[in-house]
């Protein structure tokens, strides 16, 4: 059988293009809409190819995050997508922080959106409408009835199904591989790894920090993980190791507070004094980082550091201890 030269040339050029494309695929070259710094985002997104592939990657990560929500609820799909899940480290580790601070969420003026630590992010979706509506709101009649019978569906006014979060882990791994700038994936993945008692939780957060060194929420998340380890170590016989962990946790929280504060200041509109492009989750995380930096410094007996923090973070308002 003779193969025409044109065909061979076409194949070879196809292979060359594929090779070139493969060399261009670098997840770190695109930051999508999640990048904090607009200048940096613009610089990174100069490559048209990186933008095209990057958009696909970030969309894939979003889809995977929604998938984790569905897994959490036994496959039931809720309307609000990502908004139903906790978006910040403080939301996820609320109990840890509250125990250290010695008061509950209501006192410092924000709600965590979930009832108990076990259910973590998922409880926020209680009462949220489902993608498949209930019979009285479904125009499809008997077709809608069939959908409700075939698909995982539950009336959202009834108590939710909650799984233990273990089976979500592969999705967090994939979403952060697909988009290393997906901070929310690292935060939630680290939380669920920690809930499984896996030593990989810290490694995962640190991987996120290597790829996103400026993400203050990840510094806070590492601080909270170390704080939990410190509290566990405190109950054990070696008190010194607990102190080392407390110091590390404080340093993480301090770093998170410093980073978060500088990022927040950069977003303050000078004329109106409002903070632009800054979510309530970021604000809550920043407050939590500042509070923990102060509380842990005091606990370590470093009164001067605590006073300096209080002074430095005073701009955040009356929620500091």
């Amino acid at each position: 059988m003779r193969i025409p030269a044109a065909k061979i040339l076409l194949w070879l050029s196809g292979l060359a293009v594929a090779g070139w494309l493969a060399a261009q695929v670098d997840p770190g070259r695109y930051e999508g809409g999640r990048a904090r710094d607009e200048q940096e985002r613009a610089q990174r997104n100069r490559s048209a190819l990186a933008v095209m592939l990057g958009e696909f990657r970030t969309s894939a990560s979003d889809v995977m995050f929604i998938k984790t929500e569905r897994y959490m609820h036994g496959g039931v799909a809720f309307r609000q997508g990502q908004r139903t899940a906790a978006q910040g480290a403080e939301d996820l580790y609320a109990t840890e922080e509250e125990e250290m601070a010695g008061h509950d969420g209501e006192e410092h003026g924000h709600s965590h959106g979930h009832g108990d630590d076990e259910h973590g992010a998922a409880c926020a979706s209680h009462g949220m409408p489902t993608v498949i509506p209930p019979a009285e709101k479904d125009f499809r009649g008997w077709v809608g009835d069939l959908y409700r019978a075939v698909k995982p569906w539950r009336d959202s006014s009834k108590p939710h199904i909650h799984t233990d979060g273990r089976e979500l882990l592969p999705w967090f791994r994939l979403m952060t591989l697909s988009d290393p700038g997906y901070i929310q994936g690292y935060l939630a993945g680290g939380f669920w790894l920690q809930k499984q008692g896996s030593a990989m939780a810290l490694d995962f957060i640190e991987e996120g920090l290597r790829k996103n060194p400026e993400a203050f929420q990840l510094h806070l998340s590492r601080g909270l993980l170390r704080l939990r380890q410190a509290r566990d170590a405190e109950a054990g016989p070696v008190e010194e190791s607990a102190r080392v962990l407390f110091v590390e946790a404080r340093d993480d929280c301090l770093r998170a507070a410093e980073l978060g504060l500088s990022q927040r200041l950069a977003k303050v509109d000078e004329e109106s004094g409002t903070v632009e492009d800054w979510s309530k989750y970021q604000e809550n995380d920043l407050l939590a980082a500042c509070r923990l930096a102060i509380i842990l410094s005091e606990r370590l007996g470093e009164v001067q550091t605590a006073a300096r923090c209080r002074e430095r973070f005073a701009a955040l308002g009356p929620h500091l201890p």
Partner: peptide
């Protein structure tokens, strides 16, 4: 409404989501 009843809803024959979470459903 017309589309719902004219086009066959192939998604109705996909029970994979429940099969994945079979311990619940």
């Amino acid at each position: 409404w017309l589309l719902t009843y004219v086009l066959p809803q192939l998604a109705l024959f996909d029970l994979s989501e429940k099969t994945v979470h079979f311990e619940i459903w």
